[in-house]
Simulated assay, not measured.
Amino acid sequence: MFKHLFKLIWNKKKQNFLLITEMFVSFLVLFAVFSMVVYFYQNYKKPAGFDYNDVWVATFSMPEHLQSNDSVNLFAEAMRNSLKSMPEIKELSFTSMNVPFSMSTNGTSVSSQQKPRVHTNIFEVEPTYKDVLSIHMVEGRWFQKGDHVAKLRPVVLNQKLKEELFGSEPALGKTLGEENYKTGQFEDRFKVIGVVQNLKETGDYQAIESGVYRGMDSGGLRWNNTILLKVQPGADAAFESRLFKTLSNMTGTSIEIEHLEKKRITKNKLALVPMIIMLIVGGFLIINVAMGLFGVLWYNINKRRGEIGLRRAIGASGSAVSKQLIGEAMVLSTMALIVGSFFAVQFPLLHVFDLPASVYVAAILLAIVFIYLLVFVCALYPGKQAAAIYPAVALHEE
């Protein structure tokens, strides 16, 4: 049976080559689309690692008349006391501008004995940062008052950075080096005091990034003019208006108040844009492939009415004729998938785009199943039409 199918395909190799090429290109496009879909889905399934509900972000500028660190710290303490006096605010924390779901980034390179250079995000935070976001500790402890006076600055790592730097070894008590931009050398500057669960700070669909948290020192408040506020559930626009007025009166500068939940939605929408574009392109391609395949099979039936009539005249059943046409289409798709799979397998082998191998494997399987289903559906109706051809009519027309 297969030998006969290959012989029929070979006799029309030029026409079939175009079909194989069309299905090969379709497979590659579907592989790319499914890779993105699987990648986003795997990221979406991971836990957030923190609670962003009822958390607001307030950004401001320090008044220009504050010159010394002492005056800045006194002003920040007065602001903290004023805000905490509001019953709607449960907790607050000054932090750097790269809060969760923001467009701001702050990066550095750190090193350990196992890894000489690892790029990571760095977050300047206060001890209350953990309580505002309900962060879960995996090892060790969070920051305490007085940690910033230690010789080596205490830091907390997320699980991803801990695994990159130390693998399965414990991280507590170990030192990290940071690059000295004047000399270009890495010098021991940090001591690990804790490890926290990974936080999906870049959105639900993006990969978790490495992160190191370090306590904000007395001079950090001058440059870190962002406050995270944990508010009571149900805090409304009236309270937001009072909060805005309070901050504006204290700073005399422009104030911006955002909700982490809304920032998360915006961040997720931006992440989905490339996937939506890929889905649209892939959808148009699949429609064109389906129409082309359906048209070619229909054309083949009309061209091969004499052959089909002869097969029916010598005893072939209608179902056998239908299976033959469907079988030819499936063999053509198998040829295209073998070539396409060869190229697709190179992605996990060569670590292209540095995605997990499971993403590519799942995308290959999904693309194969989709192509087979598409070809089967497109060949099914023409196959039934071929099975309905009467031998006498077909031979009479010839």
Results as ranks from 00 to 15, higher is better:
residue 253 T to E: 13
residue 226 T to Y: 03
residue 255 I to N: 00
residue 206 Q to Y: 02
residue 278 M to C: 07
residue 265 I to W: 13
residue 211 G to Q: 05
residue 248 S to G: 12
residue 216 M to T: 04
residue 274 P to I: 04
residue 264 R to W: 11
residue 269 K to W: 09
residue 281 V to T: 13
residue 218 S to E: 13
residue 238 A to C: 15
residue 251 T to I: 02
residue 236 D to F: 06
residue 228 L to N: 03
residue 237 A to M: 12
residue 280 I to M: 07
residue 213 Y to P: 13
residue 234 G to K: 01
residue 282 G to D: 08
residue 259 H to R: 14
residue 272 L to M: 11
residue 270 L to S: 14
residue 220 G to T: 01
residue 275 M to E: 03
residue 282 G to K: 14
residue 273 V to K: 14
residue 263 K to T: 07
residue 261 E to P: 00
residue 233 P to L: 00
residue 217 D to F: 04
residue 260 L to F: 10
residue 264 R to S: 14
residue 237 A to I: 12
residue 272 L to S: 06
residue 253 T to C: 00
residue 275 M to I: 06
residue 220 G to C: 01
residue 275 M to W: 06
residue 229 L to S: 03
residue 208 I to T: 12
residue 270 L to K: 15
residue 273 V to C: 08
residue 274 P to H: 05
residue 273 V to P: 05
residue 210 S to C: 03
residue 235 A to F: 12
residue 226 T to L: 02
residue 266 T to G: 11
residue 210 S to E: 14
residue 284 F to R: 04
residue 213 Y to F: 15
residue 223 W to R: 13
residue 224 N to E: 04
residue 252 G to R: 14
residue 279 L to A: 13
residue 260 L to I: 00
residue 228 L to Q: 06
residue 255 I to G: 05
residue 243 L to E: 06
residue 215 G to H: 12
residue 234 G to L: 09
residue 274 P to K: 02
residue 246 T to R: 12
residue 267 K to Q: 15
residue 253 T to N: 15
residue 210 S to A: 14
residue 281 V to A: 15
